[in-house]
């Protein structure tokens, strides 16, 4: 039984006290796009792709608690445009070479681009000079592909208890740094750590497994991102 209900685009959604809008939407089979959010991690509120209007005010669905009788707008032309713009920003901020990235097909940024209908970004590419850290025997970090979503920061701190990653610098100079002067190889990260597994893009990659599944048969090659959540709604009798 749910504690209360609220609406998303007019659809009544049950929710429990303490649930975020995004969690309640997921349970109801409504997919709100998101990039920095990951199950088991505290929400970060970094990417803002999950922005919705709560009683007319923009909020990130991943951080905002659901409340009784709340009116949430989610899939409107206006909000779709904001989300698309933010995802385009992420594409131009880094160097995302999808055509030869081993994450291609499993990449959430790429999948989000397809889902939101981005063919080519309208913003100019920034072509930043960024480094690759290959000092670790089993894991590499390619900062070119990083979208500063902070999943690795939260996973390493909260799930692995290691604090291997943290943001350094400020503003558009922000980047993820590691907890050692000499690079990732000097940290106690292991390839089995959640922090090494949860990167949504090809920035943190476990070595020597990149092409185990051929392109064309990867996760989002088959179905668009969010399909698993939307499938829940199709399966319930009340779903439209």
């Amino acid at each position: 039984m749910s504690d209360f209900t609220f609406t998303i685009d007019g659809v009544e959604v049950p929710a429990n006290k303490g649930q975020t809008i995004l969690e309640a939407a997921d349970a109801a089979g409504i997919y709100i796009p998101r990039l920095c959010w990951a199950r088991d991690l505290a929400p970060g509120g970094h990417c803002r792709v999950c922005t919705v209007l709560v009683n007319g005010r923009p909020q990130s669905a991943c951080t905002h608690p659901a409340g009784p009788k709340m009116v949430v707008e989610h899939d409107t032309p206006e909000i779709r445009a904001w989300r698309k713009n933010v995802v385009e920003m992420l594409f131009v901020e880094g160097n995302h070479y999808c055509m030869f990235c081993e994450k291609s097909g499993n990449c959430e940024l790429q999948a989000m681009g397809y889902r939101l209908g981005i063919t080519t970004p309208k913003y100019p590419y920034m072509f930043p000079q960024r480094a690759v850290d290959a000092t670790h025997p089993d894991v590499m970090v390619d900062h070119n592909r990083c979208i500063a979503c902070g999943r690795c920061v939260r996973a390493s701190r909260d799930l692995d208890g290691k604090n291997v990653f943290q943001f350094v610098q400020r503003g558009h100079h922000v980047r993820v740094a590691v907890n050692a002067e000499g690079g990732l190889g000097r940290t106690n990260l292991s390839a089995a750590d959640k922090a090494a597994q949860l990167c949504p893009v090809g920035a943190i990659l476990v070595k020597r497994v990149g092409y185990a599944v051929p392109v064309g048969r990867r996760l989002y090659d088959v179905k668009p991102i969010g399909s698993d959540i939307e499938a829940k709604r199709a399966a319930t009798p009340s779903g439209k």
Binding site: C47, R48, R170, G171, H172, V174
Partner: peptide, 21 residues
């Protein structure tokens, strides 16, 4: 604002640079 954005969230971190450009 480009200088003083904290960089936590994408639209402020990137968008202000694009506006300036």
């Amino acid at each position: 604002f480009v200088e003083e954005s904290c960089g936590w969230c994408a639209p402020c971190r990137i968008g202000n640079v694009l506006i300036r450009e």
